[in-house]
Design a protein around this nucleic acid. Sequence first.
DNA 1: CTCAATTATGAACGACGTACATTTGAAATC
DNA 2: GATTTCAAATGTACGTCGTTCATAATTGAG
Lengths: 216, 216
Amino acid sequence: MGRRNLHTREQQTEMAIAATELILVREGMQGLTMRKVADAIGYTVGNLYLLFQNQDQLLLAVNERTADAIYVALRDSVEGIAEPRAQTKAMSAAYIEFGLRHASRWRLMFEHSLPVGAARPRAIELRIRRMFELVENGLRPQMPGAPEERLRLTATTLWSGVHGICVLAVTGKLRWSGTDNFRDLSDHLVDTFLLGLGNERGTGIKRGTARASAAE
Amino acid sequence: MGRRNLHTREQQTEMAIAATELILVREGMQGLTMRKVADAIGYTVGNLYLLFQNQDQLLLAVNERTADAIYVALRDSVEGIAEPRAQTKAMSAAYIEFGLRHASRWRLMFEHSLPVGAARPRAIELRIRRMFELVENGLRPQMPGAPEERLRLTATTLWSGVHGICVLAVTGKLRWSGTDNFRDLSDHLVDTFLLGLGNERGTGIKRGTARASAAE
DNA sequence: CTCAATTATGAACGACGTACATTTGAAATC
DNA sequence: GATTTCAAATGTACGTCGTTCATAATTGAG
């Protein structure tokens, strides 16, 4: 067969991404192959390589969507919520909820890594950054007068923590503890952290000296 | 060739695990193959399958060691430190330090997942549990009179948070933020969280209702 | 209708995880 | 020391993977 004109390049790309997500959901990352994706959209493997340079690029495209979806989920979660603390809690709950509900896509996003030395994709970084900005916005009213850099540090810290709960929840690494209610964990983290934030007095953030030591 | 008696089964197993770790360090998870491991220990692939049922079992053996190493690192990090808060901070710093220094092995441990429906290995769970107990021990003096279940919840929460920082640090997902000093992040998290813990008053941990909804 | 340009194909390649019949050599028996 | 025995190690084979590319099929322009 030659040119079929059934779908444009863009349509095929769209279909391929959607098919990848579906396979990911149904069979996990290990069940995903280029051939399955090609079959699912009614084309051959060779054709898939006219759409994506390689498998990594396809997965990157999927991750880009996932990042968008997370952003939207977080943004929606604070809609209509005025109280800053409630906003932060709602966002963290929404984040974990998303991770659990879309486990395979979420894991692909955070576990897939490019071959060594490959350039980190701008698009994904940008989206992670936007996500953190959302957190900063919710945090700002709770830290009146704090310099912007301090706000960023705090947002990064808190959200890394929330992310940690999500990681362990999604990968089932907390199963031994009997904890199946992750909302408790995230609420506890956010509540306690924010409480501590409001009670800082003379504690003074210590700027440590240990730098990231690249090894191994 | 037949029986060579150069190494016992146990020695070969040991060699295989060590070789796997070395390859992991040098080439990452994607560079790891059964053939490379076999070559590295001077045996053939077939022989490797007399030592490990399959690749997953080999990786599990590696992960078991990693878990032990983390445990030891955490235990050593609090040696000679009396003050509970300092203990907790030292442990979290040691945890992140370990993750950064042994990135590939650390990632393998937390990102490798068995095929769907496979039983979670007891040995690994046990080791994760022991690690959390270490955290609980450091936390206990800082929560006088707290019931054991609450202590466990708190330890899980805090350590999930530390883990989150570690994940993002190790996978380079925080690179955009200019943060290369992860000790700042973990100290900030621990300080603020513990401060909040000491100031709880009428806040009362809310027991949420959202359960883990298995989906996708 | 013809023909160049484009699009999709499918065969092929090397590498992978894994299985297993075959061969090798150490030890047991005589 | 020769022979037997049997575990240990080999190496070939199979199916699948990601990826490439010569080839065939289809389209739109002239």
